[in-house]
């Protein structure tokens, strides 16, 4: 980076190494290495190399590792940054709410988690209208439940309280 003061070089190096791109790509590399190592942990019956169940995955994982290394080096040298996050709170709430939501559908049914998810997600996006938000949160999942569970006879998961929703 021409024109930058020399005193910032060290900080610059730190941000380069610790930036999000490097961390995520390092993660990709570690996952691939772990998976590659796991291919030796299992034993398989086939003696023929090409017909071993691990023959093909090992080729792919080796390519993954190689490409991850190249990409990591490129990112660390190019100093490119991911787009800044506007609101950590909003993305954090939406991410966590989605993950919890998809986890709960199997055990708690479709309707109730959907209502709660809609309420949380809408308020995270800054919509707090006292009428629209609850109406939307109940109407959208409610319509889907009426349609699939009761009109079409192909039910979505139901709650522990009743088989009706």
């Amino acid at each position: 980076m021409p024109g930058r003061p020399a005193a910032n070089l060290k900080d610059d190096l730190m941000t380069r190494i610790a930036n999000e791109r490097v961390v995520v790509q390092l993660g990709l590399l570690i996952v691939a290495l772990a998976l590659y190592a796991s291919t030796f942990a299992q034993s398989f019956s086939s003696s023929d190399l090409a017909q071993s169940p691990m023959f093909f995955p090992r080729i792919i994982l080796a390519l993954w590792i190689g490409l991850a290394v190249i990409s990591l080096v490129q990112s660390a040298r190019a100093d490119d940054q991911a787009q800044p996050i506007a609101s950590w709170l909003r993305i954090g709430v939406v991410l966590v709410a989605t993950l919890v939501y998809v986890n709960l559908i199997g055990s708690e049914g479709f309707f109730l988690p959907s209502v709660v998810f809609a309420l949380i997600c809408l308020s995270a996006f800054g919509i707090r209208h006292p009428l629209f938000v609850p109406v939307f949160a109940i109407a959208v999942p409610g319509t889907l439940v009426l349609l699939f569970n009761h009109a079409l006879g192909m039910p979505l998961p139901t709650s522990r309280f009743t088989y009706l929703f």
């Binding site: 479709f110 997600c121 809408l122 996006f125 959208v140």
Partner: peptide, 14 residues
């Protein structure tokens, strides 16, 4: 957009 994004997640789940 907020309503659309919420609806997308719910529809994807279905």
């Amino acid at each position: 957009e907020a309503f659309m994004m919420t609806a997308i997640v719910i529809l994807c789940a279905v």
